[in-house]
Design a protein around this nucleic acid. Structure first.
Lengths: 158, 158
DNA sequence: GTAACTGTACTCGGATATTCCATGTCCGAGTAGGGTTGG
DNA sequence: CCAACCCTACTCGGACATGGAATATCCGAGTACAGTTAC
């Protein structure tokens, strides 16, 4: 899985705390010391997916498009990784010299079904967790984090 | 995910029906019209994982190392894809200029925990399904498949 | 006739090219704010 | 003094290089069988 997913999730948590301020991608990159242009690319994917909105120009930047409790981890993963399923069945059972009439392959490939079942369980778990819960979990471990983040983004100018 | 997983799973099902015969990788490749050398590479991974055994020479080939109901889909996936987790946390929360003392990061990263939780659900589903169940599922849809496969591997000589 | 030997044909196993996607970077499109100029 | 305009500086957005892993292939190591030869 692309590491852009990790960056996107952490960025969403930061944006959640800084809401409703618009934050420049450059500053988000500085916070974690990430390549600014590449992080920008990932944020663009979030924009296309409607998770965050962007405004150009000075005072511009990114902000969450909706409340953090309405953004699931699955939303972010799909936005960056794409909608392609991890296991894609190429129907090799219908290739080769021992192939039957297409009627015999009406039933979907059993292996594909099994793999898809596991993948759905994965997606279900991701869809059950929201960005808001990530924020709450972090705050539970170190309660002063939101305030510390806000202060850094307000004051530090480098 | 690598397509070698699909090849490996289908090969295991075939080997399950042809057990206890040893089948040459060349013949397995012919059955699905796959690149013989590359399929061989995937089968080697299954050998290293102890899922199938291999014997060289004429009359040699591959065969299942244990009963099909003792081989889970997770076994095959891990054997080919490797043990690396899909989401790997690079601890970017500890990078950057706003970093605290290492004590504050005793608690594991909340995002990594959430992603790992989803991945464990995926693995659990895969571990709950065996090659034997794949064989049973196929046979339920088209009962003559095992016999047809055995006949092809016995007679066809191309 | 039999047994040992040797050669051959067939298999797996790991080292070696090639293609494609994730990674990383760059420049153009767009906008807010301030400075300037004319009334 | 005020308002309209323009210019600059800063942002996002998509097009353009680069590297490493998945894909694909080839040749060497190992083995069973058959044919041959010596006894």
């Amino acid at each position: 899985m692309s590491e852009g997913v990790e960056w996107g999730l952490h960025s969403c948590v930061l944006l959640g705390w800084l809401s409703p301020e618009a934050v420049a991608g450059r500053r988000l990159a500085e916070y974690h010391e990430l390549p600014p242009a590449y992080l920008n690319k990932q944020l663009q994917a979030l924009v296309r997916a409607g998770i965050v909105t962007s405004v150009s120009g000075p005072k511009g930047g990114f902000q969450l498009a909706r409340r953090p409790d309405r953004i699931t981890l699955l939303d972010v993963v799909v936005a960056i990784e794409g909608t392609e399923k991890a296991f894609r069945c190429t129907e090799i059972r219908q290739q080769g010299r021992n192939v039957l009439s297409p009627e015999h392959y009406r039933q979907p490939c059993s292996i594909a079904v099994a793999m898809r079942k596991a993948e759905l369980a994965w997606r279900r778990e991701l869809a059950a967790q929201t960005v808001a819960e990530m924020m709450a979990s972090v705050q539970r471990h170190s309660p002063d984090t939101p305030e510390r983040v806000r202060r850094w983004f307000d004051t530090e100018r480098s």
